[in-house]
Computed example of a mutant assay.
Amino acid sequence: MKKLLVILFATLLSLPASAATLLVAAASDLAYCIDDLAAAFRKEVPGAVVKVSTGASGNFFAQIRNGAPFHVFLSADMMYPTELAKLGAADGATLRPYAVGRIVLWTLDPRLDVGQGLALLRDPRVARVAIGNPDTAPYGRAARAVLERDKLWEAVQPRLVIGENIAQAAQFVQTGNAQLGIVSLATVRAPRMAGVGRYHLIDDKGVAPIEQGAIVTRAGSREALAARFVRFLGSPAARAILERNGFSLPAAAND
Rank of each mutant, 00 (worst) to 15 (best):
K151Y: 09
G132M: 02
P110G: 11
T175C: 10
N59S: 10
Q116V: 03
G176M: 02
S235R: 05
V104S: 06
V216D: 02
A20Y: 11
N254Y: 08
D36A: 15
R149P: 09
R159H: 14
S18H: 10
R218T: 09
A10S: 15
V188F: 08
A127K: 15
A39C: 00
S14V: 00
A167Y: 03
G213P: 01
V146F: 05
H71G: 03
L180V: 11
H200D: 04
G117A: 07
I202Q: 01
A17T: 11
Y199F: 15
V45A: 14
R149E: 04
P46S: 14
V207R: 01
D255F: 12
R111N: 10
L13V: 00
Y32F: 12
N165R: 05
L152T: 00
N133S: 14
G206W: 03
L242W: 02
Q168N: 10
A167R: 02
R128G: 03
A40L: 11
A38G: 13
R244K: 13
D150Y: 05
A31F: 00
W106R: 08
D77V: 06
Q157C: 04
K2A: 13
G181C: 06
F9V: 03
V230S: 02
P97T: 05
T175D: 14
F60S: 04
L87A: 12
D123H: 13
L108Q: 13
P110C: 11
Y80R: 06
G234C: 00
I131S: 03
C33D: 06
Y139M: 09
A48N: 06
I131R: 05
A155P: 02
A251D: 11
R159T: 07
I131G: 01
D113G: 04
I215N: 00
G58R: 01
R159A: 08
G132W: 01
P250W: 06
V161S: 12
F70Y: 14
V49L: 12
Q168A: 09
